[in-house]
Amino acid sequence: MGHSGISIFFEGANFLRLLGGLYVSAKIAFLSIFFGGILGIVLGVLRTLHNPLLRLLLRLYLEFFRIVPTIVLLFLFYYILPQSFNINYKADTVGTIVFSLWMAAEMSDIVRGALISVPMHQVESGKAIGLSTVQLYRYVLVPQSVHLMIPATINLMTRIIKTTSLLLLISVVDVINVGQQIIEANSHRYQDGAFWVYGFIFILYFILCYPLSRLARRLERRGKAGANG
């Protein structure tokens, strides 16, 4: 009992290394949310148009990303891009691509769901006073549906952040991967390293996601109160 296991974080640069790993995870999450979000909004608007073929294609895209587990998606892109298409990206990039496409799929459903929840008479009234399609979205559809989109989008963001934990499997040096290295490197001096390091990463993810999910819940409640009034 020379020392407590918690001091594993103060050996060398362990603590900074963990934060560095967290930065890699956070960067991938941020880029995916950004690019996937934009693509998702476009796809979501496209899915409200009356084009059966386009709708079917985008629906299939969504369902594919819904049915295949994220791990499997990661491996699909990680193995098949280089093998069949001769595209060699770093694992970080593959992760960003997969999460962006996944974000876009889920986002398109949020946008579509919110847009079609706007009552038909609103759209028709807008058309009746001669609004163009762009104006219709700008002044009628978006203002009335954005309160539905925002909480769902924030919840989706927390899902993306949590799912970055899977990047470990395609050997991205993310926070968990760094954690494993630290546990192994210090296994002689700290027999209970796994307890402390994994416990700490558990808390790190919680600190990242908790404020977001609280915000989502607050906005949701406010949205509901607004709808009743």
Binding site: T158, K162, A194, S213
Partner: peptide
């Protein structure tokens, strides 16, 4: 509910499988 919803399953499993045996 907050703890479980805001943390990834992977790290929950690692903590259960590798962390807890040490205590």
């Amino acid at each position: 509910v907050e703890l479980s919803r805001n943390t990834p399953l992977l790290i929950q499993l690692f903590f259960l499988f590798y962390g807890l045996p040490q205590v």
